[in-house]
């Protein structure tokens, strides 16, 4: 029998890459996080801290008025009860905007993630992102063109029913919510879309093969499985919406007085920075309280 020894690998000397000194894991982690944290400290934490200090002052530290430390700015809600109403308005607007974004955004994301025909998905994604590329102010003002009396909406209605009255709802809360939904919907679509595309088609097919109709697939499979995306979308929208001031001001007119506009007024019109800062931090506390209350529900949803 011929010897197979020749095919055996000969004994080789030590080879392979040299192993030099490798820094411990935490060094790499720190090095990777440093730029971000340095930036956050500089750009977010420091200004925020300054504002926090301001909120305890009696007046903006730029005039000649004497400055003393005080807690009176935080009593604004007690001293001026109309602020409570405004705060409530902001929360209601925030709630409806987030809800509408969640419903429309999720459905759009489902459509997007299910669209497999040719380049349909890319096209739809671009159409959704397109508004992002135009200036926010322009987008909001363009809504006034649509919603005002004898605007685009009225003209459209009069094409169908020439004798109908005006259905203009500019300068109402509906207009504010409409504008906000328009502005923030892409966030929801994107977060939900990212969550939805990770769902294996076979899971949906399995559900259908077991007898599930579309609503069962939607509510028992897609919504719970994409809950993390839905929740992060809600957080991403709710927080800026209740502090928004541009949309309420332009589309809400007289009824568009929200916490956002009040705070903005303190900084730009009344020049009362301490009050503005105090209101901002109160708002932040309310938002955190709301998230804390629902965190149990959110966690359960996100665990899926």
């Amino acid at each position: 029998m011929p010897s197979d020894l020749t095919t055996n690998t000969a004994v080789r000397g030590p080879s392979g890459p040299r192993t030099g000194w490798t820094p411990p894991q935490w060094v790499a982690t720190t090095a990777l996080l440093m730029p971000t944290y340095a930036w956050l400290t500089l750009a977010v934490l420091l200004p925020l801290l300054t504002m926090f200090c301001f909120s305890f002052l009696s007046a903006t530290p730029m005039g000649k008025a004497p400055i003393v430390f005080t807690l009176k700015q935080y009593r604004a809600f007690i001293d001026q009860p109309y602020l409570l109403n405004i705060g409530w308005t902001s929360l209601v607007i925030g709630f409806w905007t987030t809800l509408l974004c969640a419903v429309f955004g999720f459905l759009a994301a489902v459509a997007l993630s299910r669209a497999t025909f040719g380049r349909m998905r890319e096209t739809l994604l671009i159409l959704i992102l397109l508004p992002f590329w135009t200036n926010g102010l322009v987008r909001v003002f363009s809504w006034t063109m649509v919603l005002r009396e004898n605007g685009f909406l009225d003209n459209l209605l009069h094409l169908v029913a020439p004798d109908a009255g005006s259905i203009s709802f500019l300068y109402t809360r509906y207009a504010v919510v409409l504008g906000l939904v328009h502005g923030y919907l892409p966030y929801m679509i994107l977060t939900c879309y990212i969550a939805l595309i990770t769902i294996d088609d076979a899971i949906i097919e399995a559900a259908v093969s077991l007898g599930a109709r579309w609503w069962t697939v939607l509510f028992k499979i897609l919504v719970p499985m994409a809950a993390p995306g839905l929740i992060s979308g809600c957080v991403l929208i709710f927080v800026p919406v209740i502090g928004s001031f541009m949309e309420p001001r332009i589309l809400g007119g007289k009824v568009g007085v929200t916490m956002g506009t009040v705070i903005e007024d303190q900084f730009t019109q009344a020049f009362n920075w301490p009050l503005g800062a105090a209101l901002s931090f109160t708002l932040l506390a309310v938002v955190l309280a709301i998230f804390a209350t629902f965190s149990g529900v959110l966690k359960r949803g996100a665990a899926a």
Partner: peptide, 18 residues
Amino acid sequence: VWGRNIGMMFQSYALFPH
């Protein structure tokens, strides 16, 4: 599909993870 009363198994198991 939902009206055909079929039992189906997939390569990826396709269990509902939640």
